Simulated assay, not measured.
Amino acid sequence: MAIVLGPNRYGKAETRLVRVHRDGDTHGLVDFNVSVALSGDLAATHLTGDNSHVLPTDSMKNTVYAFAKQHGVAEPETFALLLARHFVETQDHVDSARVTVESFAWDRLGPHSFQRRGDHTRTTVVTVTRETTQVVSGVTGLVLMNTTASEFHGFVKDRYTTLPETTERILATAVDAKWRHLSDTADWDKSFQGALDAMTNAFVNTYSLSLQQTLLSMGTSVLSSRPELAEVRLALPNKHHYLVDLSPFGLANDNEVFIAGDRPYGLIEGTVTRDDVPPASAEWYL
């Protein structure tokens, strides 16, 4: 039996970048967390410790900061594309560059004053090879809740089932969604906001008999409204809310007082895709 080196990559993870764009007295603010991963002809460093094909990860960090100064920073997709193409074009031994960006939003309070927005984080993953480019945008930590218009019944029951059926429940989740673009050019901000709005509106307006049904509705709404997107991948944890038993205190609880559960939780995952688009050029679930 032979033991061989399998797929591998390396890079600099979570380079924190804050870029202030100064336009007179009015400033712009961009706040990114940037990760770079390279793959290609890197077997020698694993097999013999030969680092002649290894660009130091410290150089990747420095590139992030230098590019932020030289090129400015706008949409995360644009910045990630710039970085990924740079590493593939300048490093002969690199076949693929993957750049991941978390974008933290700040709301303007004045010409040079801001307040950090904490309701969700915008995400971007760009993968550039010598043949293809793939752009995946998304959002994580988007917490949504419907206090009614949700049921759950008719499910399988076995000897370990204790969950009662219900025709009235709270439905809450923290959305982790990614959507793959059909090309590497788009109005990135408009596309992101449009996908976010479509997903949120579907959650609000779907009478849910299961979180799976809601997932499909959200993904369908995104693809129906955003022709530049090929597919959407959603992970929806079920943020359980349990009715509190108030009977020991002589009080009725008519779906008004709940315990917000932490863990364990149900996790619903699925992909909604067009049936006429080319497959992904690189893994984009990871």
Rank of each mutant, 00 (worst) to 15 (best):
T132A: 01
A80I: 05
H153L: 15
T90S: 07
L236D: 09
L215V: 03
N51P: 02
L234I: 11
N205D: 14
E269M: 14
T121R: 02
A202S: 05
E165P: 11
L81R: 01
Y242M: 15
S225H: 12
A97V: 02
R274Y: 06
A186N: 03
P76N: 06
L82R: 04
E231M: 02
G266T: 09
N62I: 06
S103A: 14
R130W: 02
D197R: 11
V277T: 11
T45N: 04
V139N: 00
V156Y: 12
D92S: 12
P278I: 01
D254T: 13
W179H: 01
E269S: 14
D176I: 00
A260I: 11
L142H: 00
L251A: 10
F67I: 04
P264K: 11
H86I: 06
A13M: 11
E75P: 00
A37P: 05
R117Q: 12
F67N: 05
R19N: 11
H241C: 12
V34C: 07
Q193W: 07
T220L: 10
T173F: 03
H53Q: 12
A2T: 15
A37S: 14
N33T: 14
A195E: 03
S103H: 06
R122A: 02
S217V: 09
L234H: 10
L171C: 06
D245G: 13
W188E: 00
V18N: 07
V135R: 00
S96V: 00
L38F: 03
D176V: 03
S208R: 06
G154H: 10
D176N: 11
L82D: 04
A252I: 07
T124R: 06
S137A: 14
N8F: 08
M199W: 01
A177H: 02
S210P: 09
S191D: 09
L81C: 03
P237I: 03
G40R: 00
R274P: 05
V88T: 01
T123V: 11
D25E: 14
V257A: 11
L215C: 04
